[in-house]
Design a protein around this nucleic acid. Sequence first.
DNA 1: GTGAAAGCGCTAACAG
DNA 2: CTGTTAGCGCTTTCAC
Lengths: 341, 341
Amino acid sequence: MSLDSKRPLTLRDVSEASGVSEMTVSRVLRNRGDVSDTTRTKVLAAAKALGYVPNKIAGALASNRVNLVAVIIPSLSNMVFPEVLTGINQVLEDTELQPVVGVTDYMPEKEEKVLYEMLSWRPSGVIIAGLEHSEASRAMLKAAGIPVVEIMDTDGIPIDAMVGISHRRAGREMASAILKAGYRHIGFMGTKMPLDHRARKRFEGFTEVLAKNGVEIEDRAFYSGGSALAKGREMTQDMLSRSPELDFLYYSNDMIGAGGLLYLLDQGIDIPGQIGLAGFNGVELLQGLPRQLATMDACRLEIGRRAAEIIAAQLSDPPDPVETKVVLAPTIAYGDTLKRR
Amino acid sequence: MSLDSKRPLTLRDVSEASGVSEMTVSRVLRNRGDVSDTTRTKVLAAAKALGYVPNKIAGALASNRVNLVAVIIPSLSNMVFPEVLTGINQVLEDTELQPVVGVTDYMPEKEEKVLYEMLSWRPSGVIIAGLEHSEASRAMLKAAGIPVVEIMDTDGIPIDAMVGISHRRAGREMASAILKAGYRHIGFMGTKMPLDHRARKRFEGFTEVLAKNGVEIEDRAFYSGGSALAKGREMTQDMLSRSPELDFLYYSNDMIGAGGLLYLLDQGIDIPGQIGLAGFNGVELLQGLPRQLATMDACRLEIGRRAAEIIAAQLSDPPDPVETKVVLAPTIAYGDTLKRR
DNA sequence: GTGAAAGCGCTAACAG
DNA sequence: CTGTTAGCGCTTTCAC
């Protein structure tokens, strides 16, 4: 049975229980250096019997190695980010590295705080969403002396490495597709998030192409909080009663787009004939709707994977050569709500 | 400007730069003990100028204090868990504590691994989903000597504290409501997850009440992977063509329920007259559907909050008294798909 | 193969 | 209010 003391077990306890020096116990537990089978077995038995769990804090301090990768994202409730995390996990599972997640709620000050907190644990690398950070955050990232991968967005200059898509281009391409399909009276709906730089860039790209073709967004609306599906429904209803001449609705994300779609189907409106619709993200979750919303895949899983691969590569000894500026190409999915031409 | 060496900064660097002893620098940086304003300002200026980030690894080792709370959950892509995390965050934000998340993918061996990994960082507390764990995991949790809160489920005996709902009871109550409404020919659809103990318990409670009333589930189907909405749609179609006599469909989660709902609406079937439907979870996301699916709230946010409160209370000095076995009461939402009686 | 000594960067405990 | 001393539990390095 294990000792009944309050004090957590140390290497020394295992050493004493097995009659092997601390140093050798340490070697066994880390599979490092040559140890005779006899000793190894003895040590492992003792460690198991005691229920010893190594103290990584001490280990990290002594070895100056921490197998943690800080992952800093704006939100967990956005669908998008859990998927990125999945990609990161998939890659890191085959390595010694462990992701540790911090959430910023899209707030630069909180990002700064979370980053500081995470860096104080001296992680081996950082994966962080976006290219926009406070001066202090940028300074910390530069000074950390570890690989940094900025993800999701490629419209800007990374501190170190980056993996993502160009949201400006995504907006531009969607605008082109919409114009090509013949729509001319366009409404826009999105989140009221001045700090969501990626949504902003998509919007800028979108309006840029419209403007070049002499088209302007004729109505727009923004929401915050609540169920996105419900908001999409409400906002769509409001917008169409306000601006009945619209023939296309562009949504900043798939969830509100789906809400709009369901509303229009309820109303018996001809989609994509009378009105076309498009969202953004390629949310798999929505694949059971009566119609498939036109959208654009944001390559989330791939972004996570590539980012993790970059970190892993830079950390291997010697560093594997990898592309450190990765611009992925999102593709339009026309679905059933955008005429194809 | 900061030093251009590769070596990360230490307290000593700040000490030298400010001409104040390491110890006093440490005190300033931690706001502990009395320090004169003059010294404080000097130190803070030096630290900022250098861009010093404290090394928590060394701090934790020396002080034997780690402000980390390990949070271990089965999945991030389930909606449910991000919401629990939100609750945990809300509470921990007002404390010194920081959540660190580990994901098990519903696999006991992975849970064991993740737990071991996290415990080796000597966190101050553990919040872990479920009451079912491997022997080794239970042993680790007991031996850790820190507060442990098992969440989500209360049908079982916790190692230490627990916060959740009784899934067995949730199943029973839904069965009662369905029977009371007059439905008698019931089909069930759920995930193919032998390791999802909570889904299993709901199912057991459900069938138990049916059996007591001489009713049996007449058809059932299980899925895995893919878009839950799409699966709900497919499975519902299949089940009804196979068993057209069914007058109620019970889904193990809201997403597949919503898929089924959309399908039935497409078919012009009278809901809840001809067929009734119910899911589980109270997913806010779905509030924009044409009809509201009957469901049962799993109190996710509340569970997260209460769990974090328990940890915080036990860690405060002296420990605040708190309820450590919290059984929340989920409530049925009848929505538009279950007749009320 | 194995062990002994030194120290990672910080903080507790005490002294002034 | 400030400084000194002695570790925290482990790994590095070097000796045997």
